[in-house]
Design a protein around this nucleic acid. Sequence first.
DNA 1: ACATCAATTCGCCAGTTGTGGAGTTTCGTT
DNA 2: AACGAAACTCCACAACTGGCGAATTGATGT
Lengths: 203, 203
Amino acid sequence: MGGTGEAGRRGDGARRPVGRRPGESGSRDAILAAARDTFAERGFAGATMRAIAARAGVDPSLIRHFFGSKAALFAAAVAAGSDVASHLRDALTGPRDGIGARVADAYLRLWEDPEVGEALRALIRSGVALGGPAEQLLEAIGASDGAPLPLERVLAGTHLLGVAYARFIAQLPAVAALDHDELVELIAPAIQRYLVPDGASRG
Amino acid sequence: MGGTGEAGRRGDGARRPVGRRPGESGSRDAILAAARDTFAERGFAGATMRAIAARAGVDPSLIRHFFGSKAALFAAAVAAGSDVASHLRDALTGPRDGIGARVADAYLRLWEDPEVGEALRALIRSGVALGGPAEQLLEAIGASDGAPLPLERVLAGTHLLGVAYARFIAQLPAVAALDHDELVELIAPAIQRYLVPDGASRG
DNA sequence: ACATCAATTCGCCAGTTGTGGAGTTTCGTT
DNA sequence: AACGAAACTCCACAACTGGCGAATTGATGT
């Protein structure tokens, strides 16, 4: 299925000079950013190293020079999204009052961070089977502090995951167009009811 | 990234005879089933026609003979999962009492159908941008009967989607191990509260 | 019996993919 | 000033990809 090729962000068709560039080039970071974007858009299999290199404005071999292989590049690119759990711990360990809103806010804020958000999209789009962000989120919420209701906490995680999917991946207008605080307010009650069994204290 | 090749479900290494087989071969259906499975496991880009053919026990060219192209095969393979909306209409148009449990039950039952479920997995794994099952589910629930609260209905859809993701795609043990009815009972209240604004009528 | 059509495989092609080797230019250190 | 290491590109390759034409075999209608 012949693609027309990716017009590079930096590549303008003219041959780049060979050899090291003067000063700080930032090529490594450019590659990581391009990889995150491309993996997020097309998934692991659909993203080609040539497309990533073109987007970063470098030669494909430079990717290998820095990262070794496509799999290693993927791992490096999505590293930012690999510890969802730790970012939610604060929100989860706070007082039960308003915990639904706090967790929803923290989770959505995570997705809104450009680096983390693209990494999460890349991970989900690539369908990473084990250790993926979905499992991590769900398990993190479920087993956060040895609470007696891990299952219902996992269900809270599924709701958050579904909201994130609709807002950031499917980009469904109804959900994606909402203001951050608006969305938090809307889903907070449901999260709250899962996290604390008796449905007290509004979001 | 050189794979070792897919050991065919039917292919045993021996050369298959050329020419038409006697009797009903069922090759077309075998191809569709193999395509659904493979697309579900690896996504559109990751699934190769050769892998699908091997899984179905046929020559890759037979796929082209029947379906024309990889894209057309994909479309045919996921057709079963393309009208999520219609299958939920009954559950949504019933009485408000117990609508949460009814919708949750109908939705999960959809995923449990082998044909539909694999089609949905394939669609989500492939990241179909528009018209995908995620959008369809969400929009179907949101706009079902011109109700005054489409947004909150969409949020119910996000929860269901997240549950399905955890149970059928990520296959998170905590959610995947649950009995169907158990799971319905657990999430029904949340769905119910989204679908009817005043949180009346249990499960 | 004969002609027609569908099912099926084989071999091939042009393009793409990830990877690797070899060379060139600059940086950092001594 | 010399020199090793790092950044960077070009070229090539072997494998794989989707797609296609052609040949072979069986089923079906007349």
